[in-house]
Design a protein around this nucleic acid. Structure first.
Lengths: 333, 333
DNA sequence: CGATGCAATGTTAGCGCTAACAATTTGTGA
DNA sequence: TCACAAATTGTTAGCGCTAACATTGCATCG
């Protein structure tokens, strides 16, 4: 910076002012400084800047360390939004889905000196890390946590999972189904809980039976297992439709039904959640609930940057139904 | 740090020494300092440290801003490896797959003051950004660039795409296929080029015909289009097997064949590349080539951290064949 | 024409840490 | 016991930037 100042014939402080868009700099001076910067290929040292200003223009993202569609998409969206705002993004992934691992990851981010943290890890234990850390920086949690205690300092942003489940279930009910099983996501995940509640609410409203098949994970193998368990019920006419907690599970279910010779949607309808890139190309193409992850990412960043002033009401984003070929009216008995 | 020093009854420099594991500190002193740190909940300021040492313990990852399986998996693997080494990871995604966007992203990372960059964006234009930037920090590129000019300062780490394609093609040839079409990935991507070359090499060695159907993108819709174009050839017996450049494309192809009533693997075999989470649950389950992304991530980080001393020979990692139900011998005419 | 005010620039003092050197303590052998 | 080396600790000086205050220059007005 001293070199730039010398070349431009000004003091280093004037260079600093130009760089920080300070108003009281004459246009001519500014141009000289800019030209000097260009000639020297000067780049401001961010460490020094961070030291002097005591903020880093960096936000931390805590995410789960697996190839899950939703969190991954959200992280990308947050990164894009942050970059547009001139922020840097430091990502830390979780080794395991427990409180200890979450606390460790959170500390790692805080050590980095981030100005704020977005947690994209929608399982319940991650909340414990918040309590443990007692942070002095703003935190946004992307998770459908509907009951947040007053004491919780975090802001919440999420897609309305419960409503998504209600939409999915409503779609099946509207087609004439009443025997709708739910292959629910693993315990301990907000999304799984909310989707289960939304489905159950809707079923009770319709006075329809509640048939739940819990899956052990979010992934296709668990869906496949659940599908196999459902085959007999479908053949017996006890289940005419399945609401899977996500599209991976739905893929496994479709596979299990196909192996058993159960036809979708003739014998049974299947609906998923997420809308994966390949959901439209499954056999049959999968009706599902789409989540606007880009909006989530954008909302999360906005909430983080303006959050200190704003109210703590959760920002809730609506999902949409995507109707494809895996759902149809039940066959008449 | 001054507070810690005061509480421990030592100088701030001794605290610094404890923190940096300097050998010449008496055990008792070290314990006192650690205790003071604990009591005060002290955290070292990384900006100040970075300023004093002029390195940030942060590595930058440049990646593509989409939900592509391979790059995403690689990024996660690098992050995990970096965290294990005490490094922070700053991620920047690309808006578009061109040189300008790449240069911008790279500059964004350099501005951040990273100690090194890993580029996980295996399209050819990204290389131009390297030339433009003329970096003074180490760079590792995760891309199957087989001909690297001497002048290129970057280190390369990649899965042997060409060999993967040879394995896939060899598998089909071994089953008795000779009319093997390749649905190739979009132009401008190293992986697409290499897979095409591997397939072509193997076909020429076997003196088999070379039938290529280029796809416009890496995604299922392009595979679907390619599949539709292949249906007639399959019916005419001109194509008995398809090697898709990745599993998304293969999913679209399977779908197109299913719609046309072309049965896999009875009428035609299909093999993919990547091994997605759901590839085993497609109908039929997809034979594919698996890439060990975790190894790639690990190798990339090692190369980055030790790269200055090491030779510049690319680190090449071998893929493996995963045989499932989508490939079978051709039906006898 | 001098006093006044404001815009533009310069000067100084840290931000919290580490590197380099200085000073002190401790241990060792003659 | 003392000289000397080694281990341990302390002191000083930045790293490159920004904040706060000081100074200069210039226009405006009575």
């Amino acid at each position: 910076m001293a070199d730039v100042a010398a070349l431009a014939g000004v003091s280093h402080q004037t260079v600093s002012r130009v760089l920080n868009d300070h108003p009281n700099v004459r246009a001519g001076t500014r141009d000289q400084v800019m030209e000097a910067i260009r000639q020297l290929g000067y780049r401001r040292n961010r460490a020094a800047r961070a030291l002097a200003t005591s903020h880093s223009s960096t936000i931390g993202i805590l995410t789960i360390g697996s190839e899950f569609f939703g969190p991954q998409s959200t992280v990308l969206a947050i990164e894009a939004a942050a970059r547009a705002q001139g922020y840097f993004v430091t990502v830390t992934a979780l080794d395991r889905y427990d409180a200890h691992s979450s606390t460790e990851a959170l500390n790692h981010l805080v050590d980095q000196g981030v100005d704020g943290v977005v947690m994209v890890a929608p399982f319940e234990k991650v909340i414990d890390a918040l309590d443990d850390a007692a942070l002095k920086i703003p935190v946004v949690v992307v998770a459908a946590r509907t009951t947040v205690p007053e004491s919780d300092p975090a802001h919440y942003v999420y897609v309305d999972q419960r409503e998504g489940a209600r939409i999915a279930t409503g779609h099946l009910l509207a087609l004439g189904h009443r025997k709708i099983a739910h292959v629910s996501g693993p315990t301990g995940w907000f999304d799984a809980t909310e989707r289960q509640i939304g489905w159950q609410e809707k079923m009770l409203e319709a006075q329809a039976p509640v048939i739940e098949v819990p899956a052990e994970s979010w992934l296709a193998p668990s869906g496949y297992e659940a599908g196999k368990r459902l085959v007999d019920s479908v053949r017996a006419g006890e289940v005419t439709a399945v609401f899977a907690a996500n599209d991976y599970l739905a893929t496994g279910i479709l596979r299990a039904f196909w192996e058993a010779g159960v036809e979708v949607p003739t014998d049974v309808s299947v609906i998923g959640f997420d809308d994966l890139q390949i959901s439209n190309f499954l056999i049959p193409s999968l009706t599902t609930v789409r989540q606007p992850f880009r909006d989530v990412g954008h909302a999360a960043l906005t909430e983080l940057l303006e959050g200190v002033t704003a109210d703590k009401t959760p920002k809730v984003i609506a999902p949409t139904l995507v109707i494809r070929a895996s759902t149809a009216p039940p066959k008449s008995q």
